[in-house]
Nucleic acid binder design. Structure first.
Length: 575
DNA sequence: TAGTAGTGACTAACATTTGCCCACAAATG
């Protein structure tokens, strides 16, 4: 079993326990453990083999035993026992908007509903309205919610899809008279790779006109809730959008609350209580009856708790509050520190612009040097370069450098294919002619773990290979990551000085945040590149920087912050 | 259930809005 499967079992157990009505702390313990396993950045099997499971925060002896049982037998007796009381399929009901553990229990006890299909049947048969604390309205609402779930599912949306949509809506609302501040909050602001919904915030003294405009936006399909300060809508593509409106003098605590994460908020509010405040989105209320403290900025809110400002991308309750308390927050990478881009394509392969045009676009986007890294021959679909064309390209790059002058530099690179048999698409003597060599996987991504891993390890151990691009090959929401022993790859990268890419394209974000964090622990250098195929794709950089921040990456470990001479020196030193 | 203190017991996750039925469940971060 892998991390995802173990975590999923624990989440299901948590749901079953919640439906059964168990002690909330017991439920939370399973949820916390599931989260910790998902965020681990290491293979749970390896951690288990090393006997280090209880080192994971939130995992004690009881859960460690359960994990070991799952990993060795593939089963969990506790799960099977629980399943006799609460059918695991009952957990499906919780996916329906409007059904929580209590309702699920009630539906099971009174109507014998055990899964989503049976719930839909019971609802359509008009059986729900007869239940206590239910009525015709609740029934109709659930029927609609079930239909919505069947139509759009409840998959999370890639950040790259949600981001432009969120800003489009926000721009429309920003022009309403009386609006003084606007923000995209929630997981999009934290730059999670996928979002469950879009959270918008607006500062205005009078909320009503904003609410009104919001629910009437052209993207809106239906309104699921509308009160004086809060409204929720569903868009035509199924995505939910929440809006909160408050006066500007409460902006700091409002933004803090709505940005989350939930776990970060809970932790902050506990901290506030210990310091004699109740903290909510409206402000700090001293528990001894003194006057309320309003914060117009997030900085003021953190300051009130005696904390330095914590970037949104760090707010996951993965140790950032403890670090802030110790005045030991990581000095994470900022976008203005990035001066290079080491992965991009031109018309030589599947890019849209010439070498010179890409260089000029990069320069306009603030980069001081770049690597042109077109595909190699075997990637026919991308018009990969033969050795002969690669050498012709060298000449063009030389000429472009002459035209651009001393303030900018183009490195000649390649994105050489790691072929299905684990060999590289160019011979070593050709790679030796290049300034910067990226190796990457694009084909045969479904090989078994050992074979996949070995292909990357081969590339890492080739002295000519400087970087591995988008290591897992995943496309968020479309293609799963290749099955890789990431720990072995990270260790090998650390040992050889091979750079691992954090591909900034929001549909890749590969390395993902948890592996970035593991890379930092191991001293692996990363590169945040756009993989641009056109000029406007240089703008994708901020997604990569956000993901790097989520992995607590610092500038010294991000090679794109290095002056060219430093990068070249590093590459020369590399074994 | 984890964590802590101490080997069996105790504590521990905050604060709000909305809808719908008539007090509460579910939802939001």
């Amino acid at each position: 079993m892998n991390n995802r499967e173990v975590a999923h079992t624990f989440v299901t157990i948590a749901d079953m326990l919640a439906i059964r009505g168990d002690n909330i702390h017991r439920v939370l313990a399973y949820r916390r453990a599931a989260e910790a396993i998902q965020d681990l950045g290491q293979d749970i099997n390896q951690v288990s083999a090393a006997g280090k499971l209880t080192d994971i925060p939130g995992i004690g002896q009881t859960l460690a035993d359960k994990i070991n049982e799952m990993l060795t037998t593939g089963h969990l007796a506790f799960y099977d026992k629980l399943a006799q009381e609460i059918p695991p399929s009952l957990v499906e009901l919780l996916r329906v908007d409007g059904i929580g553990p209590k309702r699920a229990r009630q539906l099971y006890d009174t109507l014998g509903v055990t899964n989503l299909d049976e719930l839909a049947q019971a609802a359509r048969a008009g059986k729900l309205r007869e239940l206590p604390k239910m009525g015709a309205k609740s029934e109709a609402k659930l029927i609609k919610a079930i239909a919505e779930l069947e139509k759009h599912g409840d998959e999370r949306t890639p950040l790259g899809t949600a981001w432009p949509l969120a800003h489009e809506m926000l721009t429309a609302l920003a022009s309403i008279s009386g609006v003084t501040k606007t923000a995209v909050a929630g997981s999009a602001r934290r730059m999670r790779e996928t979002v469950h919904d879009i959270d918008l915030l607006i500062a205005a003294d009078d909320a009503a006109p904003v609410m009104d405009a919001f629910v009437n936006l052209p993207q809106v399909e239906s309104v699921s809730g509308q009160g004086p300060t809060k409204a929720s809508v569903t868009l035509v593509n199924g995505l939910q959008v929440d809006l909160r409106v408050l006066p500007a003098d409460r902006w700091g605590t409002l933004l803090l609350y709505f940005t989350g994460s939930k776990a970060h908020n809970v932790h902050l509010r506990e901290l506030a209580l210990k310091q004699g405040f109740s903290l909510n989105e409206y402000g700090f209320t001293p528990t001894d009856g003194r006057a309320e403290i309003l914060c117009a900025t997030e900085e003021e809110a953190y300051q009130t708790l005696g904390l330095p400002y914590i970037l949104p991308t760090l707010r996951e309750d993965r140790g950032e509050i403890e670090a802030a308390l110790a005045n030991n927050l990581p000095d994470v990478i900022r976008i203005e520190q990035i001066i290079s881009d080491l992965h991009m394509h031109t018309t030589w392969s599947d890019g849209k612009l010439s070498v010179l045009d890409m260089a000029r676009a990069a320069q306009e986007h603030g980069r001081q040097y770049i690597a042109i890294t077109d595909h190699s021959a075997s990637l026919g679909i991308a018009h990969g370069l033969t050795v002969e064309r690669l050498r012709q390209q060298a000449e063009e790059i030389h000429q472009a450098n002459e035209r651009l002058g001393p303030d900018f530099r183009i490195l000649h690179g390649t994105e050489v294919e790691i072929k299905a048999d684990g060999t590289l698409d160019y011979p070593d003597e050709v790679l030796a002619e290049l300034d910067f060599v990226i190796a990457a996987l694009h084909v045969s991504l479904k090989q078994p773990r050992e074979q996949m891993t070995q292909r990357i390890l081969n590339a890492i151990h080739n002295p000519h290979v400087d970087m591995i691009a988008h290591p897992t090959g995943r496309l968020i929401g479309e293609r799963p990551p290749a099955d890789l022993d990431m720990e072995a790859i990270l260790q090998a990268a650390a040992q050889t000085g091979t750079i691992l890419e954090l591909n900034a394209n929001p549909h890749r974000l590969d390395l993902k945040d948890i592996y970035v964090r593991r890379a930092m622990e191991l001293g692996v250098k990363i590169a945040i590149n756009t993989d641009a195929h056109n000029a406007d794709q240089f703008d994708l950089l901020h997604f990569g920087v956000g993901t790097a921040q989520r992995g607590w990456a610092t500038a010294v470990n991000v090679v794109n912050t290095w002056p060219l001479a430093q990068l070249l020196a590093w590459l020369r030193e590399k074994s």
